[in-house]
Design a protein around this nucleic acid. Structure first.
Lengths: 305, 305
DNA sequence: CCCTTGCCATAGGTGATCCCTAGGGATCCC
DNA sequence: GGGATCCCTAGGGATCACCTATGGCAAGGG
């Protein structure tokens, strides 16, 4: 079996026309280099040097082999350098999950933050257009993600809360926005709610359901839609009201439902934004970077914990 | 230290998304592949796979690393193939020494012979335009050579005679060609002789001197020139006579001295053509090929031994 | 011509590495 | 929950890489 070490020894020997000087250059004893070269000759089935009195003389086989050997070592060097530049975040791809409302907080600005600090990297925000962040997390295809969680524990997952996001009542009807909304009024309202694919993780509805239950009501939604934006748009058209994260409301209302407004719930209800990754995993520098930047952004928008 | 073995294991694992299947493909036990991959990760300082329950998942670092790893292995493969094709004489350079008059017998035709049998090889006939074949042989820069030798033993050299070449007297004066030339007449003649740089090996003059000494004469040459061709040309112009190998005379006279002819010496004197290489060396296939073909050619021209 | 010097090969020993088998823990599917 | 799958760890044997010490051979200088 060919080895890079053999090639290194071969090239040093070829250049110096001497095993002794090659060994000096490489920092080995002379017999070690001799052994490597002999092993290479054996595995190639060709004599590379004629041992002649003082010094060694490359054969034509060695002449032919040398450029190939150099190419192999150059390629190996390249490979190592490529990885080194990943390690120092000079290049490579950073993939990070942002699911549910979290994705509203980590848009183009977050990507821009990363690119500003590390111009060479590619960034993928998984979850922006795909619904399977938790699945990817669980299966290990994604290293870490930021999501809104209801329960602060989930099997095999390490969940680090970083901010809380109040849930608010959103309506296009100003008369409904005069006072905080109680559980009673909430239960009576016509609501449009986004349906999140993964119940275990997305928390808005779980938290809300708990609040209603505690007050003796059952949640009833009139409309189910895929994502928050659609819900907000429907509110803007006056077709229903909704409950959503305050951060999302602040961000989406001006754009999607300028005529709508919001009031807090009574009692106040909070959603928790958290960093989630597999328990026990040590995170890569890339993941740590994304977590740090995403956390900064989120905590700038909503209430830090 | 990076190793090709690690890269092989990495790629198999990457493709199968499984250490077990990679091990199967490579014919190892699973822990062995696992160890190689772990070693690679350690030496690169980067995690390449996330171990997640069943199976392993490549990280983005692995995605980046993979094409580089493939290039390294491809280059290594190339290198091995290049050598294999040398070994089977499909390609590579064959370098062979032909010194003194021997070079007259191994010209374009010999090269053509080799190229016909092995279209991919390069051929170098050292000595055609350089005078240091014996030096190169002694220093090991040349593996083998065909030369005309006087003594059949030389320190550290293995000398295999393959043919004998009669020395003949060459003149443009027909009156001198009526009978074999004796030592007496030789000693009286105006001779032009090629001066070979290496006396130990080139034999024509040594043999000749011995013949004269035995008859009680001293050799005296009127003109010394560098090579045989020049000597023959001078004979053609009638400026002197010469003594040279019969093979050389047959080959050169029609071209360089059409008006000249030759007669044998009396007693007859022979030069010996031989294959020379370092004693105790095992010859490469390329060298053996050259020896075989050169021998065939020579024995077709002059008298085999 | 011998003697020194330079260089490669061999010998023998030590620690690391390669690769195995056996068994434990996690996950997935039924 | 139980079986199957797949990874990891542990531990042991063979091999390999590297060392120092030494011998042989060629080159070069008194």
């Amino acid at each position: 079996m060919l080895s890079l070490h053999q090639l290194t020894c071969f090239l040093a020997t070829y250049e110096h026309r001497s095993l002794t000087r090659a060994a000096e250059e490489l920092g080995y004893a002379q017999p070690s280099v001799s052994e490597q070269v002999r092993g290479l000759e054996r595995s190639l089935g060709v004599q590379l040097f004629r041992r002649v009195g003082r010094g060694v003389v490359p054969t034509t086989a060695a002449d032919t082999f040398r450029p190939h050997a150099e190419r192999v070592l150059a390629a190996a060097d390249d490979a190592e350098r490529a990885v080194a530049s990943i390690r120092s975040l000079e290049t490579g791809t950073i993939r990070f999950g942002m699911f549910g409302v979290a994705r509203l907080y980590g848009g183009a600005d977050l990507v821009a933050d990363v690119l500003a600090r590390y111009p060479g990297v590619r960034v993928e925000l998984v979850g922006r257009h795909s619904m399977d962040v938790p699945e990817n997390l669980r299966r290990g295809r994604l290293e870490a993600a930021m999501i809104a969680v209801a329960a602060l524990s989930s099997e095999g997952m390490s969940i680090t809360p970083i901010a809380r996001d109040e849930l608010v009542y959103v309506s296009a009807d100003p008369s409904k926005l005069t006072a905080p909304v109680t559980a009673k009024r909430l239960a009576e309202a016509d609501l449009v709610m986004p349906e999140s694919t993964l119940r275990d993780f997305d928390s808005g509805r779980i938290v809300l359901r708990r609040m209603l239950h505690e007050a003796g009501y059952n949640p009833s939604t009139r409309i189910e839609v895929e994502d928050v934006e659609t819900a907000i748009e429907l509110v803007g058209r006056g077709l229903a009201d909704t409950v959503t994260n305050k951060g999302a409301a602040l961000q989406l209302l001006p754009r999607l439902a300028p005529n709508a407004g919001w009031v807090p719930l009574r009692p106040r209800v909070y959603d928790t934004m958290a960093i989630v990754h597999r328990a026990g995993a040590t995170l890569s520098p890339a993941a740590r970077l994304m977590i740090e930047l995403a956390t900064q952004r989120i905590q700038g928008i909503i209430e830090p914990l």
